[in-house]
Simulated assay, not measured.
Amino acid sequence: MSASESEPALMPTHPSPIQDERALKLLRDGHLEVAGRLIEATNMTLYCSVSLNGSTAACVYKPVRGERPLWDFPDGTLAAREVAAFEVSQATGWQIVPPTVYRDGPFGPGMCQLWIDTEREVDLMRLVRSRNPLVRRMAVFDAVINNADRKGGHLLPLPTGHVYGVDHGVCFAAEDKLRTVLWQWRGKPLAREAVGVLAKLDRELESGALGRRLRELLTLAEVEATWKRVRRLLDTGVHPYPSEDWPAIPWPPV
C-alpha cells in the first residue's frame, strides 16, 4: 500500500466558500478600526475590527509602510505576497489561507486578513510533526508558493479540525527558498488528491484567472517560477527534498 493510500480520509471541516465571500466583502469594504498591535510580529501587524452593514469581525492589518526591508525581497511587496498566497489557496480549493484582501487603511494600503480563533488545546509541535493530511496539503501548498518561513506558529488549528496557515509575506521568490518545519513527507509520493490539484493549478497558471491575478500582485518572473514549481512537482511526483544551498528550517522554528 502506498503512503497516499494509507492516509486517513479527509473530512470537509473547512469553512464554506459562501462564508469566505462574505468575509472578503467585509474585509474589502468595511470600516477598519485599529484596536492594538501584535508586538511579537517582525513587521507592523495590527489587530483591528472591521464593520459593514451591522456585521463586525476581527482582522489583522499589515500596512506596507510597516514592512521592514529585507535583503532578498523587494521593499513594499510583502502585503501583495500575502494576497497572492490567498489566491493560490483559493485556486487549490483547500482554503489554507484565511480570507485576505489588499486595501487602504488607517496607515495606508496593506494586507487585511480575517482573524482566526484557534483551538487552544492542540499541541502545535505535535501537529507539526504529525501525518495529518491537512498539514500534508500545506506542505504541498508551501512547495508551490516557495514559502521561506513556515514556522509551527503559523499553523492555526480550528475546533472543527481544519488547519489554516498564515504569514505568507516571504513567498513567491523566483529563486528556490523553501524553508519549513514540514519535511516529514520529503521524497514521498504526492497524494492522488494533490496531483489533481497541481494539474488544476498548472492549467490556471498557464491561461486561467489565477495566472492573470498573480501577475497583478507579483513580478512576471515570480509568476513564471511558480508555474515551473507546479510543473516540477507534477514531473517528479514526490514532495521536494530540502535544498543543499538554503537553510531547510526557519529560525526560530515555532
Rank of each mutant, 00 (worst) to 15 (best):
L46K: 04
A143V: 08
R232N: 04
L78Q: 14
L205H: 06
E244K: 09
C48T: 15
R103H: 07
L26F: 08
S2N: 15
I116A: 04
K62I: 05
L52W: 10
R68A: 11
D123P: 02
D167E: 06
W115P: 00
F73P: 00
Y241V: 02
W246F: 15
I39K: 08
E224H: 12
V223H: 03
W246C: 01
N147Q: 06
G54S: 07
R213W: 02
T160V: 06
R22G: 08
A80M: 09
G36Y: 04
V238S: 02
E206I: 01
D176T: 00
L182C: 12
C171I: 11
V140K: 00
W183Y: 07
S51Q: 09
L178R: 14
L27P: 09
H14R: 15
W185I: 00
P69E: 13
P253L: 07
H239E: 02
I39P: 00
D72L: 07
E222V: 08
V135A: 03
T236G: 00
A3K: 10
S55R: 12
A221K: 15
T13Q: 07
R150G: 07
H154W: 05
K177T: 03
G153V: 11
T92R: 03
E204S: 13
V230E: 09
D117P: 00
L218G: 03
E224V: 15
N147Y: 08
D117T: 13
A173Q: 05
G110T: 12
K200Q: 08
S16M: 12
A41Q: 13
A148Q: 05
A199S: 13
R120K: 15
N132C: 14
S49Q: 07
V223N: 02
A173G: 09
Q19C: 04
G211E: 11
L127C: 10
H14S: 14
Y102F: 15
A143H: 03
V140I: 07
A199C: 08
D104F: 06
E121A: 14
A209H: 06
E222P: 00
L70V: 10
A79V: 10
D117I: 03
E7V: 07
R203H: 09
G187V: 05
E67A: 02
E244T: 12
L155N: 02
T42S: 15
L26Q: 07
L127N: 10
N53S: 12
E87A: 15
E222W: 06
R136W: 01
L234K: 07
S55T: 13
D235T: 14
V144F: 01
A209F: 01
G66K: 10
V122L: 03
V34A: 08
P242I: 03
M111N: 09
N43P: 11
P99K: 12
G30N: 06
P253Y: 05
R136E: 06
L217A: 04
Y164N: 11
T236Y: 01
T42I: 07
R126N: 10
A143R: 02
E193M: 07
T42P: 02
L158N: 01
W94T: 11
C112P: 06
N43W: 12
H168P: 11
A139P: 09
V60R: 03
I116K: 04
A9V: 15
A9C: 12
E7W: 12
Y102D: 01
T180A: 01
Q184C: 02
G169A: 11
S49C: 01
N43V: 14
R137C: 02
L52P: 05
